[in-house]
Amino acid sequence: MAKEKVRQKKMTVRVDFTPMVDMNMLLITFFMLCTTMIKSQTLQISLPSNDKVEQKDQNKVKQSEAITFILDSDREAPTTDKLTGQPVKGKVKKDLIYYYEGQADIAADASGALTNNKLKVTEFDPGTADEPAGIRKILMERNKEVVKQIAELKEHWRNKEMTDEQYQDRAREIRNDSTLTRPVVIIKATPDASYENLISVLDEMQINSISRYQIDRMTAVDSAMVLDYVAKHGGHK
């Protein structure tokens, strides 16, 4: 028998990929819905230590430099939790920031109203870049020497005259430069204030390059001042 080559028929191998694509699409959808692409940011904070500090060891803040913010929120009437029967705070109607400079000394007249309440009120709305308002304006004015130098530094950095690291180091130096007038900010909050307000204020510290700030507890004097302010100007309490 003569050798005969068996001609193999050339078949077009054509696989239908449609189901494969369908499946992939499903998987992609699943991954897209189940993942977090954006990681949360963190805002670092150090609270003062609880240890009792000897009076003489304490660094007294200069009166002229200190400014105290008291956060508060006007809330709707509280409701009761159905499950536990505990009262739950109502929704926030309006956020307020009270502030005063220096130390709080109060004196009351015969009717109990304070005669020297130096509390003022401001808002969270930061205004625009050209015309800062509310809390940002207050902080910027008090920290203007630092803010100005940081702005100049930022300009150099934007023009690529220095590396990121140099910029960070220099910025830190400026923020902590004791020859400049820098405010010391004390942040307090009433129980009604919301967590968001606290973060907003801490954020303002970053935005306005304030190096010295701390979160503190309300004192009786602070509460008295807020109550007095509300009594005089009308409000929710």
Binding site: I38, S40, Q44, I45, L47
Partner: peptide, 16 residues
């Protein structure tokens, strides 16, 4: 946290 001497910590926030 303060009582536990964990005076330093971070707040988790979203990006603004």
């Amino acid at each position: 946290l303060q009582t536990l001497k964990m005076n330093k910590f971070t707040f988790m926030t979203a990006l603004k």
